[in-house]
């Protein structure tokens, strides 16, 4: 219990897609429900409340900041520390202590979450006859998320459950649009390595997969999510929603707080 502390979850947000911030708010609601913190708030880079407004939202003197990002990178290393005026893992400012945790997506539990999501989306389909794709964005700007996606693929492959585990990207090789050529198995499960069902995972990737012929409206503005499975290009395709929408992600955020405490307790000893 951290009944004297605040949790601040930082999301990217979007000025055009209302679904971008939805999982961040959902995880905050779940953590509020668990009653772990005195207060729980979300702030965003592209929406309100902004990072710059964060401290005016919070009454508590101890604040844990967890980036709801899929990996370490430009936002977690440059933008968030700059906008929150952090000086390191622990910042003392105006009588407050701000503890800056690792991003949710870099926690070791992510591997289990990806496997869980893959199993959920294709019930009854034997993994031993399935190719599993973990799809990232894949440009130089998002290099760190590509590295993180590769690491997850390796960890999942090491467990030996799936016949094949592959990385694919939207904008660089191996391209997800060639999923049918890349996959050796007749069953194909695709899990987007993204925080929300925003532009990329809900609107762009379905077109690249061939399950939509053109960009659709945002997820929240359509009645249904997906009609799995898709019989396409001679294979059976199952497309999951983004890993960041997994309800257990709330627990991963809490795990990052615990990991921070453990690390800095060891430092103090």
């Amino acid at each position: 219990m951290k009944s004297n502390s605040a949790l601040l979850i930082v999301g990217h947000g979007s000025t055009v897609n209302p679904d971008s911030s939805t999982p961040t708010f959902a995880h905050a609601d779940e953590i509020v429900r668990q009653g772990v913190f005195n207060e729980v708030h979300c702030v965003f880079w592209k929406e309100e409340p902004s990072l710059r407004q964060a401290l005016h939202l919070i009454d508590s003197d101890e604040i844990y900041v967890v980036p709801n990002f899929i990996s370490e990178g430009y936002f977690t290393r440059t933008v968030i520390p700059r906008e929150l005026e952090l000086t390191g893992p622990i910042t003392h400012r105006l009588g407050r202590t701000i503890k800056y945790c690792d991003p949710a997506g870099s926690h070791q539990r992510m591997t289990d979450l990806l496997l869980r999501r893959a199993a959920e989306v294709a019930p009854g389909v034997p993994p031993s006859e399935t190719t599993l794709f973990i799809v990232g964005h894949g440009t130089n700007l998002n290099d760190n998320s590509a590295v993180a996606a590769k690491r997850e693929v390796q960890l999942i492959a090491e467990r030996g459950l799936y016949a094949e585990v592959l990385n694919a990207y939207m904008e660089e090789e191996p391209l997800i649009s060639k999923w049918d050529e890349l996959a050796s198995q007749k069953n194909v499960v695709v899990v987007p390595f993204f925080i929300s069902d925003g532009l990329h995972s809900y609107q762009d990737i379905p077109v690249l997969l061939g399950i939509e012929s053109e960009i659709t409206a945002a997820a929240s503005q359509r009645g249904i999510f997906r009609n799995n499975p898709y019989r396409l290009r001679g294979k059976t395709l199952y497309y999951a929603s983004s890993i960041g929408t997994e309800p257990l992600f709330a627990n991963v955020i809490l795990d990052q707080v615990a990991a921070f405490d453990q690390l800095h307790r060891e430092d103090a000893e």
Binding site: H41, E48, P49, S50, Q53, H56, L57, I58
Partner: peptide, 14 residues
């Protein structure tokens, strides 16, 4: 109010 107008009450108090 923090959902309608995020951080506005806190900003006013600050």
């Amino acid at each position: 109010l923090d959902f309608f107008y995020p951080a506005m009450l806190g900003s006013l108090l600050s």
